[in-house]
Design a protein around this nucleic acid. Structure first.
Lengths: 184, 184, 184, 184
DNA sequence: AATGAATGAGTGTTCATTCAT
DNA sequence: AATGAATGAACACTCATTCAT
């Protein structure tokens, strides 16, 4: 991921990736089917870790998180934390996922759909509980939320700025929740 | 743009671009300095058209648009319309801009910054006029808005779905404006 | 010639030659059959001017030059003067003639043969007159003389040094004439 | 070298060189940095072999060669032998070295300077020992000798003639030594 | 006569992938 | 399991030449 983050997928030579990993070129092909597969695998793992973390927190045995508002905030927070945890991976996610969404099959699109799906569920539950406005499409909300968070992350990645994931998540959700909270 | 939209920048051979344009390979280089330049030029023009359109509408002599809420809605609408107007260009914008933001210099990043800048100004004016909440960062709002809109556009581009730009803009702004409107 | 001298024949684009000449690319082809022809023509003219000058001096009506020793010295002098007269042409002669001798047909080889031929004649006449040693091949002498002069010229061209053509010619001929003058 | 000798450096395609060598195109780049490097390396080696041979003979433990006249003759002989030993290389040396002297940096010019340097030393020693005339520039003699020998070689290369290196060296040196030997 | 836009063949170089060791 | 030399397809770009104007 470091090499791809530094050069972009197409400018990252497999031999450079191998060298960075401290192995011979051929060795890469013992662990990955192709260059594509290297990227795909990393992106897959990244998305899976994200989902696992969210799901685990929601269902935490000792302290489950089931308030829809807090759930959304937690999702935003985990999303934003990815930057500080593994900068190379964050760069790759920002620069390569959309490319790959179109060209390396739709694999990463599937992941996005899954992300959106989780948020929609939360929103729908919030609507059922009367917390969120009924007159809003859960899909639109989900895309807005993902887009807003991802854009903040993107901006930070490209400018090199760092931020407090928790505080930033709070700010975004402040706007979003105000926007979708039912007034009555 | 068609060829790049179909194959991605790196998989789009210059000769394929030339063939699609109905000219010889060498002719491409009479109009563009390099393959890079082809993409850069298209992205530049696209952003410029966007800005021009927004500015022209705001300052329309017969019917200027100066209500901050309506201004944001108009920006969202123009942003969303880009998809229906030139599908190839929309795909390129979604798949290549972030790549290029990192690797083909920061040229396209500059454009994004400009977009954000316009929105921030609108938000700030809304705050001064007491329409928008004072306790929210205009930068965060701008990024949220851009991200939300762009993600909806992105989703439509990748799924091939079409939508009503005006109506969708209204929905997003409905959420956003609720979120940022001051309650008093 | 300037452009070829600066870049070498293969790196000199016809368009660059045209630009230097202040004409359009196509115009070059109204005066020359091909790029080859540009070089060939220049080299031809240069050799012809050399021969013409030598022959004219030898047969000068007012003051003919017929002493073999003085004739050789004059040839050397004219050969060496070419550098100071047209530097670009001198560079081209040094860098391109051998290339072209092999690849652009043998045209320039013909010229060299003619040069050698003239010197051989002079040497032979010197031998007949008993001025030069009989036990030496006129061909070898001719090649030695051309080679020696040309190498001095070459060295000056590559190092950018300048010299006094007349004085240098004298020095070389001093060695050569001592070497070939009959003793007794 | 065969391919370059046949076509000239600029008309020799790397793929043709690779094919002649019986390897794939890419393999060339495992052993050479660039096409330039192929030529440069060959020329370098050729010059180095020449110098090594001369130095070794001069300092031969069993039978050192230290008479200045014989030293010059030996240099001439080795120079002339290069043709019969590797015809392709001889052609390349005649056709490409001056080109490269000007354009592929001055690398081959350095080699020529070294050759001249060796001859000058020999001449100077001959002058100190009173064998050679004092009133002659060692530099001029060195250039004359190199030029004369190289021109004979060149002529043989271009006409395809072959000769006896030892005998030809003797002839040239006969002229030269007569020319520079002190009379008293 | 002069132009210069258009051509398209040609080429140096890269790099993902393989496979004998 | 690991290596890394070898492969050869692929491609961006150049430039001599043409020809309609």
């Amino acid at each position: 991921m470091e090499v791809i983050a530094e050069n972009g997928y197409f400018n990252a030579a497999v031999s450079a990736i191998a060298a960075r990993a401290g192995v011979a070129d051929g060795t890469v092909y013992l662990y990955f089917k192709s260059k594509d597969d290297v990227l795909r695998t990393a992106i897959d793992r990244n998305f899976e870790r994200f989902h696992q973390r969210v799901v685990e927190r929601f269902r935490d045995l000792d302290d489950p998180l089931d308030d829809p508002r807090q759930q959304l905030e937690y999702i935003a927070q985990v999303h934003l934390e990815s930057n500080s945890e593994n900068r190379a991976m964050a760069i790759v996610m920002q620069t390569e996922v959309r490319q790959s969404a179109k060209f390396i099959a739709e694999f990463s699109h599937r992941h996005l759909v899954k992300y959106i799906h989780v948020v929609r569920e939360v929103v729908r539950r919030g609507q059922q509980q009367g917390i969120f406005r009924q007159d809003i499409s859960d899909g639109v909300v989900a895309h807005c939320m993902f887009g807003a968070i991802d854009e903040l992350l993107s901006s930070a990645v490209f400018t090199g700025r760092s931020y407090d994931a928790k505080a930033t998540a709070k700010q975004v959700l402040d706007v979003l929740l105000h926007g979708i909270t039912s007034v009555d």
